[in-house]
């Protein structure tokens, strides 16, 4: 009994530290997952290029504070603005023509894969970002505090604070502004929204802009937390964030955050207590198990299948 208490006392700070690591990762996933879930909620498209927008955001941010002499908060904003424009451009060039033709959803999905490959390979060209890994030099020092045996770093606090701030901002936009109301209307019923005079294409463009800006912020935070960037860095976080969005119930904003937090914890806990090699396997097994019990995700509503 004494031994058990002893091991819990020793193990608890470590566990709490892992929870913090999981929160850091989960919050980054949450920002990416929001873009997936919002776009899916409106046009039912798995935007495979979203992970690559995250990558472009990371590069823009890192270039901002390393080469362009911007203070890091400004670099995040520049990355967000740049990616918002980029996201809207992609939508305009690649997805809107398909919508106009009334193409099947799978055609849009394949186009998204094409766009994803294009961004990855184009970024790998030498005059763009180059094919190599780049080590990120953080614009501020690494500070760690210890609270009751639990270590916490300034990066973790920064990630959590920035993400919470952006989540509040998003909440405001979606529930308190006119464009947010339009977005919810389009997500609910495209045809009815159009009949009410909502410019659906404009709403979709805004959705891409917001989602891409959030992904860019996630990219810069990710680059600060795990200081290495390369043109293919967006694939895995993108897929995991998408998985998180599905886990939480795709199309559902709180669901995306919940799913991302679960995904982050699952991954970090597996790496800490089981084996880092199996982190992806456990995270995806969790997804499959959840889908079998709740086929529309944790917070998703299993509506009747419209055929």
């Amino acid at each position: 009994m004494g031994y058990l208490l002893e091991s819990i006392r020793n193990g608890l700070p470590l566990l709490l530290e892992q929870v913090l690591n999981g929160l850091q990762l989960g919050f980054v996933y949450a920002l990416i997952a929001l873009g997936y879930t919002m776009v899916y909620g409106i046009i039912k498209l798995i935007n495979f290029a979203h992970g690559d927008i995250f990558m472009v955001g990371a590069f823009l941010g890192v270039f901002g504070f390393t080469y362009w002499g911007l203070p890091w908060p400004a670099a995040i904003l520049v990355a967000m603005a740049g990616c918002a424009v980029f996201g809207v451009m992609i939508e305009r060039i690649a997805y809107r023509p398909l919508r106009a033709k009334g193409a099947p959803r799978i055609a849009a999905l394949i186009t998204a894969i094409g766009v994803s490959l294009f961004i990855e390979y184009f970024s790998s060209l030498k005059f763009v970002f180059g094919p190599n890994f780049r080590v990120v030099e953080r614009p501020f020092g690494d500070v760690r505090w210890t609270l009751g045996g639990v270590g916490i770093s300034n990066i973790q606090l920064l990630v959590i604070a920035v993400v919470l701030g952006l989540l509040l901002a998003l909440q405001y936009v979606v529930y308190r502004t006119k464009i947010g109301k339009a977005m919810r209307a389009v997500a609910f019923d495209v045809d009815a929204a159009r009949l009410m005079g909502i410019d659906v294409d404009k709403v979709i463009a805004y959705t891409f802009a917001i989602g891409s800006a959030l992904a860019a912020a996630a990219g810069v935070l990710y680059a600060l937390a795990y200081p290495q960037i390369h043109p293919f860095m967006g694939i895995m976080p993108g897929l995991k964030a998408f998985t998180a969005a599905v886990l939480g119930g795709i199309g559902n904003i709180p669901g995306a955050v919940l799913g991302a937090l679960i995904m982050g914890q699952a991954e970090v806990m597996t790496a800490a207590y089981i084996s880092s090699e199996f982190r992806d396997a456990i995270a995806f097994s969790l997804l499959i198990l959840v889908l079998l019990v709740r086929p529309a995700g944790l917070l998703g509503k299993a509506g009747p299948e419209k055929v």
């Binding site: 394949i110 766009v115 030498k126």
Partner: peptide
């Protein structure tokens, strides 16, 4: 040679946008 992936991706996008039905 680095352009191979880029060209392949562009061909994919153009094919899909021009012929969504395959």
């Amino acid at each position: 040679l680095d352009w191979r992936g880029v060209i392949y991706a562009i061909i994919l996008i153009v094919l899909m946008v021009r012929r969504p039905q395959g």
